[in-house]
Simulated assay, not measured.
Amino acid sequence: MAEFGEFSPAVIDFWMRGVAPSARPHRVHVVVDPTLSEARSASVLSVTDGPQILAVSPDRAHDMGLAHGDEHEPDHIASALERAGVTLNDPDDIFHFSVAEARALVAETPRHGVRALTLDDRVAFDHFIDAAPDDDVDEAFVELEHWLVFGRFLDDSLVSAASMYPWDDSMLADTGVLTLPDHRGRGYAAATVRALSAEALRRGYEPQYRCQVENLASVAVARSARLSLFGTWKVVLPAD
């Protein structure tokens, strides 16, 4: 069973709002949230070894015949989604630092070659982006203009970068990371993510790391950075 005390109250309050940590595992708990945007009007969070949470807008709940506080078997929810014409994206893994790891992280000194980036690093950052595969750049969503940006330099060249921004009007800060292909597998991405995350924690934010479940390289970075898997998350597929 997941130990929810392992994670900070900010993480629990965001992802499990409306559902008690004591909620039964392997059941789907319905949360009707009028603040959800159309782009996130239906989503399913499967907490690691814990409950599943269906968060839906009032209109989606009406279409599915569900009410706030309902608890159902997963098959029932799958059928309700299908009847309402709701298709969910492929799942993302959601990682956060445990409270104990976060405490250690804020006292950690960044590894050699890792530092914060500013707009003064524009030339180095642009060279870095130009050297990276286009698909990786699009997926990573690392931007020099983001709220926080850190990078790993090697021989004065930027080889890995990670950026972060406050997510969904919350105290969570979502992370993107990108490493040049010739420099992967050396721990640069994990070291950059840890330095970036430490600064976010010092500013009062909770680092969040999301990646597609099948993106094994990105999952490996999260594990190497000593993030813990909170759960998997599927959100409504945008309409064509």
Score class of each variant (00 low, 15 high):
Pro21Ile: 09
Pro21Lys: 08
Pro21Gln: 09
Ser22Gln: 11
Ala23Ile: 05
Ala23Met: 02
Ala23Val: 00
Arg24Asp: 10
Pro25Lys: 06
His26Cys: 08
Arg27Glu: 11
Arg27Thr: 08
Val28Lys: 04
His29Cys: 08
His29Arg: 07
Val30Ser: 02
Val31Lys: 00
Val32His: 02
Val32Asn: 02
Asp33Gly: 03
Asp33Arg: 02
Asp33Trp: 06
Pro34Arg: 06
Pro34Gly: 11
Thr35Gly: 09
Thr35Asn: 13
Leu36Phe: 03
Ser37Asn: 05
Ala39Ser: 13
Arg40Pro: 03
Arg40Asn: 08
Ser41Phe: 00
Ala42Tyr: 02
Ala42Met: 04
Ser43Tyr: 00
Ser43Val: 02
Ser43Arg: 01
Ser43Asn: 06
Val44Cys: 02
Ser46Phe: 01
Ser46Arg: 13
Ser46Tyr: 02
Val47Ala: 15
Val47Ser: 00
Thr48Ile: 07
Thr48Glu: 14
Asp49Phe: 15
Asp49Val: 01
Asp49Thr: 01
Gly50Thr: 04
Gln52Ala: 12
Gln52Glu: 13
Ile53Gln: 02
Ile53Asn: 00
Leu54Ile: 05
Leu54Phe: 04
Leu54Trp: 05
Ala55Lys: 14
Ala55Gly: 05
Val56Lys: 00
Val56Arg: 02
Ser57Tyr: 04
Pro58Arg: 05
Pro58Glu: 06
Pro58Gln: 07
Pro58Ala: 09
Asp59Asn: 11
Asp59Arg: 13
Arg60Ala: 15
Arg60Met: 15
Ala61Phe: 08
His62Cys: 09
His62Leu: 13
His62Asn: 13
Met64Tyr: 03
Met64Gln: 00
Ala67Val: 11
Asp70Glu: 10
Glu71Val: 15
His72Thr: 00
His72Met: 07
Glu73Arg: 12
Glu73Tyr: 07
Pro74Phe: 03
Pro74Met: 01
Pro74Cys: 02
Asp75His: 14
Asp75Cys: 03
Asp75Pro: 00
Ile77Asp: 05
Ala78Pro: 00
Ala78Phe: 04
Ala78Thr: 12
Ser79Met: 10
Ala80Arg: 15
Leu81Cys: 10
Leu81Gly: 03
Leu81Pro: 07
Leu81Ser: 00
Leu81Arg: 01
Glu82Ala: 15
Glu82Ile: 00
Arg83Lys: 14
Arg83Glu: 12
Arg83Trp: 01
Ala84Tyr: 05
Gly85Thr: 09
Gly85Val: 06
Gly85Cys: 12
Gly85Asn: 08
Val86Met: 10
Val86Tyr: 10
Val86Cys: 07
Thr87Lys: 13
Thr87Ala: 15
Thr87Ser: 14
Thr87Met: 11
Leu88Asp: 01
Asn89Tyr: 06
Asp90Phe: 10
Asp90Asn: 11
Pro91Tyr: 08
Pro91Met: 08
Pro91Ala: 14
Pro91Val: 04
Asp92Tyr: 15
Asp92Val: 03
Asp93Tyr: 15
Ile94Phe: 14
Phe95Pro: 02
Phe95Ile: 03
His96Gln: 08
His96Ala: 10
His96Trp: 12
Ser98Phe: 10
Ser98Asn: 09
Ser98Lys: 05
Ser98Tyr: 07
Val99Pro: 03
